[in-house]
Design a binder for these strands. Sequence first.
DNA 1: AACCGTCAAGAGCAGTGCTCTCAAATGTTG
DNA 2: CAACATTTGAGAGCACTGCTCTTGACGGTT
Lengths: 245, 245
Amino acid sequence: MTDPGASTETIPLQRTPRERARAQTIADIVRLGRVHLATDGAAALSLRAVARDLGVVSSAVYRYVANRDELLTLLLVDAYDELGDAVDAAVDAVPEHDFAGRFTALGRAVRGWALKEPARYGLLFGSPVPGYQAPAGRTTTPGTRVIFRLVGIVDSAYRAGALAPEPGAAVVPSALSADLAAIRAELGLEVPDAVLANGALVWTSLFGTVSFEVFGQYGAETFSARDELFEHHLAVLARLAGLRD
Amino acid sequence: MTDPGASTETIPLQRTPRERARAQTIADIVRLGRVHLATDGAAALSLRAVARDLGVVSSAVYRYVANRDELLTLLLVDAYDELGDAVDAAVDAVPEHDFAGRFTALGRAVRGWALKEPARYGLLFGSPVPGYQAPAGRTTTPGTRVIFRLVGIVDSAYRAGALAPEPGAAVVPSALSADLAAIRAELGLEVPDAVLANGALVWTSLFGTVSFEVFGQYGAETFSARDELFEHHLAVLARLAGLRD
DNA sequence: AACCGTCAAGAGCAGTGCTCTCAAATGTTG
DNA sequence: CAACATTTGAGAGCACTGCTCTTGACGGTT
């Protein structure tokens, strides 16, 4: 849970005092919205409740935030960035040449953040909020940090010759190969198709596992040793990505 | 999209005409709710809107459904059953001894239903609806049909000796092993720990892949060959489950 | 000091879930 | 067939939501 009292928003330097005050108010709104989001979930996020916490009438909030969807977008970017920061910190703490270790750290960071912030994780990776469409321009960049980091690890391992040969060279069909080529070009990667396709599966599998745990799909009683289950899954996924451990 | 005109609900035989009429009305409410759910999503499901479609004032609906959450539960069970029926039909259409084929059919059925019913899929496997807690007694049984079917296929393959030796015998730690033993006992399975643990990963990975596609996590442009991507992932997951193809 | 942009407040509209009361419809029973 | 009892639908009402509009005050800039 994020401490609602810590107003540690990074506010870019503003020229006039007006702009400074305005940026501070928006930061406060995001901070309060983050608390509500973490407590009640995305669909229950209420501008009026945020206004009450801010000690202001509801219509005043609309001076700073166009509507509920824009606040949701701000919170979306905020959450993506926090997850990205957590993943970056965890990965950077592992030596560069320890590719499997870096992957494991990435997976643990994702799971740890998700379990700590289930509602915000649900906003990012759960069912879309009805009637809300995330604006592509503002959310794609922060939204791709984790997957970029993941394929970056795999690509580095490949360049270093540390990647295990893919088990049972799966030939990818041509249309998929074209997609993968585009990704490879855009991100400046070298990994071959089969590895990249497996990387995509590892990506979705990691979030699938985390989502099942966070969203309660496992049921209350089925798995009590969830840490061990996740570690086991992570090890299998590392092997699937070609990262021997 | 489910045809709102087809009132094909299975109504158990009721003694009095009153009970018959009552059951029919509840079935109509579920049918209309299903349309709203498929159109607008879970969080936007409105009892008043259902009442309007039913040609009745909102308070009258409360004669048949205690509150919004109970309607959501009815729709949850309804969706679980429809998915379970689709999966069963797809799996049963494949010869019993073709274990990999049955797994592939299961995966395709899940994806097909999810893409056809994204909002209802989101209710089942997406972020939980805020403030709503599914009653365990009424939802667990229909909610476990797919995973039971999946492990059933793997277990049958194991009994038939058709299961590939698990790649790199992963030893599962003791606490997890106890969980797996409980599952094995409850479902009457024979598969060893490592296979069962991999089966759980295959399960979560399948739904992770489907969720990413349904919830739009792939982005608009990244993957255009989604059928091929899914088929590739499915093939890798089949191998991971030990089902050679 | 005057000005003009920015701001908060309040009223108001349409929608939501849900509860309550009252009257009508309906099935059951004498 | 008639009287009864149960069930049902309608309507009003409360508290909440997102959002818009107008009004008046505050405050930085010229």
